[in-house]
Design a protein around this nucleic acid. Sequence first.
DNA 1: ATTTCAATTGACGACGTCGACATTGGTGCC
DNA 2: GGCACCAATGTCGACGTCGTCAATTGAAAT
Lengths: 353, 353
Amino acid sequence: MVSIKDVARVAGVSDKTVSRVVNGEPNVTPDTMEKVQLAIADLGYIPNLAARSIRSNRTNIIGIITDFISTTPYSGDIVRGVQDWAGANGRTVLLANTDGDQKREADVWRTFKAHRIDGVLYVAMYHRVVVPAVGEVSIPTVLVNSHPEDGYAYPSIEPDDFGGSYDLTQHLISLGHRRIGYIRLNPLLLGANQRLDAFLAAAQAGGISESDLVIRLGMEGPIGRETNYVHREALDILSMPNRPTALICGNDEMALQAYLAALHLGLRIPDDVTIVGFDDFRTVSLGLKPELTTVALPYYDLGWQGADMLDQLVQGKGSETERRILKCMVVARRSSAMARAQGQTVDAVGTHN
Amino acid sequence: MVSIKDVARVAGVSDKTVSRVVNGEPNVTPDTMEKVQLAIADLGYIPNLAARSIRSNRTNIIGIITDFISTTPYSGDIVRGVQDWAGANGRTVLLANTDGDQKREADVWRTFKAHRIDGVLYVAMYHRVVVPAVGEVSIPTVLVNSHPEDGYAYPSIEPDDFGGSYDLTQHLISLGHRRIGYIRLNPLLLGANQRLDAFLAAAQAGGISESDLVIRLGMEGPIGRETNYVHREALDILSMPNRPTALICGNDEMALQAYLAALHLGLRIPDDVTIVGFDDFRTVSLGLKPELTTVALPYYDLGWQGADMLDQLVQGKGSETERRILKCMVVARRSSAMARAQGQTVDAVGTHN
DNA sequence: ATTTCAATTGACGACGTCGACATTGGTGCC
DNA sequence: GGCACCAATGTCGACGTCGTCAATTGAAAT
């Protein structure tokens, strides 16, 4: 591999001068600069970052630790946000996945430290409470899509599940819905409670009595291997004699199953029942017809801004305890509509849209 | 940061001896070894890989270049396969995303070279023909989920779209289906043609005349911004007076829309119509009820084996032109069933399952 | 002409690690 | 005892880069 000295020799200058050119330092004659640049181009010289980092104690590498990278399809957006930030700021991204395994996580930390990376973005693919397995030496770390357990101080950045869910519920109430069904996420996920709490709060604020709410558990069990009750529960809720006019699903994947259940029962969406989801997981939310009203999670921004927070931290400017919350926007699409008087029988075959 | 010399000083030995212990070299007294290990633990010493790589000219880092990492939800599995291989073989993974942009791609190559990584896995998130923008100096590269344009030699690893599609079609034929609908992928994708060709070949081999096949285009336009005709086409096909008894969709996302169309028309799956997909994108294939018969793409293995091929290449043992094809398995679930008599037309085959 | 000063360039060493080689001390053998 | 040999350990330098500081040059100021 061609080194700075090779360039120096070819250009007929000292290695230091080449270094100056490469790093854009001042006080280099246009003449020599040209010579050097020519030599660089000729030889295809590219600076060795490892060597550079040895001297500077900065690698410009940030690490991402994920738990279940491929299990959830959203993950990509967070990672992409980080990558784009990195690309825009001259950093490189080291990626590691733990599969939620403690031992692997420890290995990953060790490896990252061995690479002397500047900082770590600890990305939990489900919004929940985590404690990174930090060892003796510590690296600046920001938790993304999660927050630390009590007693541990890490800056974190999270989506505003509560706000999003509150707004979504309000959206339905403003459309005139007074009986609303709710299918819960796996309670292990932090978002699950926040979303449910917000739902209840918004319903109460909207003057809806608890008896008009139908709340069911959609999933439970360890993350990645949960049992799924959604389809069954949706069928059940939508078969009630006095069925809700709207059904909120813990996320879009659940909404998919609710759609199928509704269609299976011959109900039209949104004419007979409004169905909404959460996440704006676009394969589903745009794939469903009519397209799904849902709440967009700011995954990309979580990644981008998380990287930015980390950068602050690395530069000693960030706060050790900052907790940033990103807004979640309701995306109103065609699956939600005004509540209507509830007909008795509906023809199974509806109209095209 | 604590270095090998700090450890040496604390342990009362030379740095070289510490190096020996760290690297498991022979000829160290159990006694000294213990002293050294104690010092390492005390100080929390972790070897500096950058320094190591400077000497050894090996970084043990492999790079992944992706084009549309988050656009497609499968991507994660390929990356995870690579990561798991890396974890199992003491390598680290550097990740970069180009968004399909030439300029960014050039930057990425440059950055990777600057890091002196051992090799690159060029992962195209859609199976298609690519040419990595290699510069002057070249890094060992393996194409994953894609293959090089004519005239360029890179080893590659790809899924057997043809075989999978052939088997899937045969599966339907063996269930008695004689009129089959087919909704095509975006023709820009390499898999699109392979899957269609295999479908036609299998149909012909099964003695089905072309006039009993209904083939429609489901999507077209630039990747990431395509126009989607699937729902409309599915409605259209399933509304035909003499409609197919089975509908093959270019991928699972398309199958989702076909489901919705079928349900919308009051058709039951699989009783009235069999619907199958491709990809085994589990959010969809398991989320749909009944669960979707589809073809599993070996994404994880693509990643794992791709990494392994790359490793061979790096070690000078691999072939520059190997083209490895991984089998795609039909995953028969409940969305496909025996063809049945339908409406006006009577079909000989008519058992329930 | 001499001095002063700034601009330009180079020599050198250090970063952390490990390969090549040297040194030390002990063991076994005649 | 003398010698060969080997195990254990250390010394030194090089990898590629860049910070520090010195050297050189030329031009402006006196």
